Amino acid sequence: MSDRLLEVEDLVVEYPVKGRRAAPLRVLKDVSVDIRAGECVGLVGESGSGKTTLGRAVLGLAPVTGGSIRYGGRDISHLSRRERRALSADIQVVFQDPYTSLNPAMTIEQILAEPLTVRDVDRAEARRRVRDLLDQVQLPADAGNRLPREFSGGQRQRIAIARALALEPRLIVCDEPVSALDLSTQARVLELFKEIQERTGVAYLFVSHDLAVVRHLSHRVAVMYRGEIVEWGDGDQVTSRPQHPYTQKLLLAAPVPDPVKQQQRRAERRRLLTAQRQAGQPAGALS
C-alpha cells in the first residue's frame, strides 16, 4: 500500500468566539496525517481531542483555516457545494448513532436507493443493487421493506454501512461507529468492517475514543490530544507499546477481563500520573 489517497497537511481549524475582541477557538493545530488506498487509519482520543473535527473537515463539514486536505492529489479544502456533492461518490461517512442517521419515515430500500439517484440508476437496477448491499452487510433481502425502527442498534448500523457503500466509495469516514453498541455487537460490526475492506479495498478513517477498537482494524494509528497528534505510527506498536504518556494512559484506562491485570493497570496508571506531576507536566494529560 504505497498510494496516498488522502493527505492532510498542517491542518488548522478555528471557530469564532462571541465577543468583538475574542480570539478564535483553535480546535486543530497543524495536524498532518495520510491514508493510503485500501488502508484503515485509526484516529483515537478522548472527547474534545479534535478527532471528530478532523473527520468533519475531511467531509467538508468543518471550516479549514489553514493547511490543506488533498484527495487523490487534489486540494479539497474549500470546495463549493456542487463540487462537494460530486465528491460524495468517493468519500462517504458512517455516523455514531445509527438511528438518527436514518430517515425514520423511509423504508430501508428507499434509504439505500436514495444515493443511487446521483448516478441516475433506473428502478430495476436500484432494487438489484439494494439486495446486493443488504447481502454485503449480512441482512436478509426482505429487510428492504421495513422501517429503521424495526431493527436493533447493530442492524441499523449495518444499514448505515450499506448506505455508505451504495456509491462504491474509495474512502469512508467512520465517526465512532460502534460506540453506541454493546460489546458483543461491537465485535460483530467491527468484523463486518474488516470483511468489507478485504473484499472491496475501501479505505477507512476510523474515529474512536477506544484503543481496543482501533487495534482491531487499523494498519496505522494517530493519537490526538488537545487538537494535536501526539503519536502516529504502526497500529500494533501504538496500541500495544505506546511511547507517549497520553497514549499510555488511554491503554491503561481500557478495561480487561482479568482482575489481576486490571489491578496492575490501575497501579501503572497511578505511577505514570505521579511521575508526570513530579516532572511538572500538566496533570490533564493523564487525569
Rank of each mutant, 00 (worst) to 15 (best):
G73L: 06
S77K: 05
L116C: 00
L87T: 09
A57W: 12
P148Y: 13
P98C: 02
K51W: 06
E150N: 12
Q110A: 13
A124M: 01
L43D: 02
R81N: 06
F151Q: 12
Y71G: 05
V27E: 11
L43M: 05
G60V: 10
D97G: 07
V33Q: 15
P98F: 02
I111Y: 07
Q136K: 14
E109P: 00
V31R: 15
L43S: 03
R146L: 13
I76M: 12
V44P: 12
L79I: 02
D120A: 12
R74W: 00
G48R: 14
E125Q: 13
I108T: 04
A141G: 05
G67C: 04
A105L: 08
G72K: 02
R74F: 01
R149G: 15
G42K: 08
D97C: 01
A86F: 02
L61I: 08
R123W: 03
Q138S: 15
R70M: 07
R128S: 09
A57T: 03
L116H: 04
V27Q: 12
V44W: 11
R119P: 11
P148F: 11
Q96K: 02
R149F: 14
P104Q: 05
L61S: 10
G153P: 09
E39G: 05
A113V: 10
R127L: 10
D122E: 07
E109F: 00
E125F: 07
V137A: 11
L61T: 07
N103A: 04
G38V: 09
R85C: 00
G144Y: 04
L134H: 12
L43C: 01
D142V: 14
Q96V: 08
G60E: 04
L112D: 12
A105P: 00
I76Y: 10
K29H: 14
E39W: 02
I91C: 04
A62R: 09
A143Y: 08
I111H: 08
E125K: 11
D120G: 09
V41A: 03
Q136E: 13
R127F: 02
G60A: 04
S152R: 04
G66R: 08
L54Q: 14
P63C: 06
I108F: 01
R119H: 07
E83V: 01
E114Q: 04
Q96W: 04
V130T: 05
R85M: 01
R131G: 15
S88N: 10
R123S: 09
D135F: 06
E46R: 13
K51Y: 08
K29T: 08
G72S: 02
N145E: 15
P63Y: 01
S88A: 11
R56W: 00
P148G: 11
A143N: 13
V33P: 14
P104Y: 01
H78I: 06
L59A: 07
V41H: 10
T65L: 10
V94M: 06
D132L: 13
V41T: 02
P98T: 06
N145R: 15
R70K: 13
I69N: 07
A57Y: 10
P104R: 03
R127Y: 02
A62D: 08
R127A: 15
